[in-house]
Simulated scan of single mutants.
Amino acid sequence: MRIAAIFLLLLPFGANAVVGRDDVPDLHYRMAAAEFPALVDLPGEGHGVLIADQWVVTAAHAVSWQKSLDVVVVGGTPRAVSRVLVHPAYRSVPQEVVESALRSGEWEAFFDLTAASDDIALIQLTEPVHDVEPARIYEGSALGETVRIMGRGATGVGSKGHHLHGPNRTDLRQGYNQITISEGRWIGYVFDRPPNAHALEATTGSGDSGGPILVRADDEWHVAGIAAWKRAQVEGLEIHPGKYGETSYGVRLSNYEDWISETIGKEED
């Protein structure tokens, strides 16, 4: 069995969002939007996180495919977008690399390009948000920490994974995992099979790009990362995302704290 690196939003067969354990009812994964108001919904699919009263952080690939981004939803209210600022070192994977991987089942070139890109963007809102408290960026490495993940994407269970073609916007769900990778651009976690798993073990996938990876600190949830891509299981030429054993990666925000601060400060001057 091989492993393929797959963007959570970029490819049509992505991976399912907030996929849970087989032995836990789906109802236990459901959540109300009011439980984390700083979650931002992008048009159609994808997420972001409000990190300042006029700023949202998201994955670059979650916004770069959109022809225009005029409105996002924060705290259940549509908010006008002033501009989208993509990290200057972000590079999308060329289509020919994707097509080659699909034909051959060999994904290492795709993986190398994915891992080397700075997949982060900032969205500036036209007006400050006064009715939602922004999330603070987690400053530690998060290695070994239990994290909370969430999203409205496709769903399923770990033994089966999910349908390759969505739908990629469903009801809001949340789950938990443990960070086992924290270095450079990325933090990551493995979707473990019961019984060696969190009671609400989960992973994210298609439709959840840009959504938060949260760590509990100072009695509140800080955002340590944003969902970006995963290494899904491949058998021959068949891809089986959302199954136990895959590793999910998020953009490690502490790695980009200087860029975020400088960009926000420059745009607000």
Rank of each mutant, 00 (worst) to 15 (best):
Arg2Phe: 15
Ile3Ala: 14
Ala4Glu: 08
Leu8Ser: 08
Leu8Lys: 14
Leu10Cys: 04
Leu10Asp: 10
Phe13Glu: 14
Phe13Asp: 08
Asn16Ala: 14
Val19Asp: 02
Arg21Lys: 04
Arg21Asp: 01
Asp23Ser: 05
Leu27Pro: 03
His28Arg: 15
Tyr29Glu: 08
Ala34Asn: 08
Glu35His: 01
Glu35Ala: 09
Glu45Thr: 12
Gly46Arg: 08
Gly46Phe: 10
His47Gln: 10
Gly48Ala: 10
Gln54Arg: 15
Gln54Leu: 01
Trp55Ser: 04
Val57His: 03
Val57Tyr: 01
His61Tyr: 04
Ala62Thr: 08
Val63Lys: 06
Ser64Asn: 07
Ser68Ile: 00
Leu69Trp: 02
Val71Ala: 00
Val72Gly: 01
Val72Ile: 11
Val73Ser: 05
Val73Ile: 09
Val74Cys: 05
Gly75Cys: 05
Ala80Trp: 00
Arg83Ile: 06
Arg83Lys: 12
Pro88Gln: 08
Pro88Leu: 07
Pro88Tyr: 05
Arg91Ile: 00
Val93Arg: 04
Pro94Met: 07
Glu99Phe: 09
Glu99Ile: 11
Ser100Asp: 13
Ala101Val: 05
Ser104Lys: 07
Trp107Leu: 08
Trp107Pro: 04
Trp107Ile: 06
Ala109Glu: 15
Phe110Ile: 15
Phe110Gly: 06
Phe110Met: 15
Asp112Ile: 12
Ala115Glu: 04
Ala115Gly: 02
Ser117Glu: 00
Asp119Thr: 07
Asp119Lys: 06
Ala121Ser: 07
Leu122Thr: 09
Val129Arg: 02
Tyr138Lys: 03
Tyr138Met: 06
Ala142Leu: 05
Thr146Arg: 13
Thr146Tyr: 00
Thr146Pro: 00
Thr146Val: 11
Arg148Trp: 13
Arg148Ser: 01
Ala154Ser: 15
Thr155Lys: 15
Val157Trp: 04
Val157Arg: 14
Val157Gly: 00
Gly158Tyr: 01
Ser159Asn: 10
Lys160Phe: 08
His163Ser: 14
Gly166Ile: 06
Gly166Leu: 09
Pro167Gln: 07
Pro167Asp: 08
Arg169Phe: 09
Thr170Ile: 06
Asp171Leu: 13
Leu172Val: 04
Arg173Phe: 04
Arg173Pro: 03
Gln174Ser: 10
Gln174Thr: 01
Gly175Thr: 12
Gly175Pro: 03
Asn177Tyr: 00
Gln178Glu: 06
Ile179Gly: 02
Ser182Asn: 11
Ser182Ile: 03
Glu183Gly: 14
Glu183Asp: 15
Arg185Gln: 07
Ile187Val: 12
Val190Pro: 12
Asp192Phe: 09
Arg193Gly: 01
Pro194Glu: 05
Ala197Val: 10
Ala199Gln: 05
Glu201Ala: 13
Gly205Asn: 10
Ser206Phe: 07
Asp208His: 08
Gly210Gln: 02
Pro212Met: 02
Pro212His: 04
Ala217Thr: 00
Asp219Asn: 12
Asp219Arg: 13
Trp221Phe: 11
Val223Glu: 00
Gly225Lys: 05
Ile226Ser: 02
Arg231Pro: 03
Ala232Cys: 06
Ala232His: 02
Val234Lys: 01
Gly236Glu: 09
Leu237Gln: 14
Gly242Cys: 09
Thr247Ile: 14
Thr247Arg: 13
Ser248Leu: 04
Gly250His: 03
Gly250Asp: 00
Val251Lys: 03
Val251Met: 12
Val251Gln: 04
Asn255Lys: 10
Glu257Arg: 15
Ser261Arg: 15
Ser261Tyr: 03
Ile264Arg: 09
Lys266His: 13
Lys266Cys: 06
Glu267Gly: 00
